[in-house]
């Protein structure tokens, strides 16, 4: 009950229609025009300037973004290109690091595998195992485990022989003429031997 009584003076706030009616019935009086019209122009000017600034900023921003789009596009293209280069060289690398390639190259360079290992024990100098020299009977067998990826990859000796091609041809004209696997191996060995007369290949240090 006391709550009801407390709200009575505010009743017109709850009933805006009543408040309006009472307002309309109030006394209306003419007020002299304000003497402070100038500051309003300043507001207008600043508002227009702001809008202008926003428009210009927006323009610059979209110019920037579209400039960036071209940059991104160019970078994307070069990323694709570089990715392809990486693919290409890593494919080459993986190809030449295959066991077939390594074995064929090692063999072409005159290396042989020794299947009877012997060990020297450092603590007492004991020789473990039975040391025998390699007989190199595995030579020429590199092609038994095929790898069709290597068909166009030359051996290191074939690449090195490029410079001494004339002397190789002179030294082994018979073997270069025939194309069998065995004679290819012979050719590459000959190439290595001929190349060795010009000095062993060694890294150049500056």
């Amino acid at each position: 009950m006391s709550d009801n009584l407390a709200r009575v003076p505010n009743a017109h706030e709850l009933r805006p229609d009543i408040a309006e009616r009472t307002g309309a019935q109030r006394h209306i009086e003419i007020v002299a025009p304000s003497k402070h019209a100038r500051p309003r122009v300043v507001y207008a000017v600043s508002a227009v300037t702001c809008v202008g600034a926003i428009v210009v900023a927006q323009l610059l921003l979209s110019v920037g973004i579209s400039q960036g789009a071209y940059e991104i596009s160019a970078l994307r293209a070069s990323q694709v290109e570089l990715g392809r280069t990486a693919d290409s060289v890593s494919e080459d690398l993986i190809k030449v690091s295959s066991p077939q390639s390594l074995a064929a190259n090692a063999e072409a360079l005159g290396m042989v595998s020794n299947s009877t290992p012997a060990y020297l024990r450092l603590s007492d100098g004991a020789v473990l195992g039975a040391p025998t020299s390699a007989d190199g009977d595995q030579a020429g067998a590199a092609s038994l485990v095929p790898n069709s990826l290597l068909t166009e990859t030359p051996l290191v000796t074939q690449q090195a022989a490029g410079g001494t091609g004339a002397s190789v041809a002179a030294a082994a004209p018979a073997t270069t003429a025939t194309g069998t696997a065995a004679s290819t191996a012979a050719t590459t060995t000959a190439a290595a031997a001929v190349a060795a007369t010009d000095g062993l290949p060694s890294p150049t240090t500056r």
């Binding site: 993986i94 790898n147 069709s148 990826l149």
Partner: peptide, 8 residues
């Protein structure tokens, strides 16, 4: 698909 080691 590529098989870098061929028949290995």
């Amino acid at each position: 698909r590529v098989y870098p080691n061929g028949a290995v």
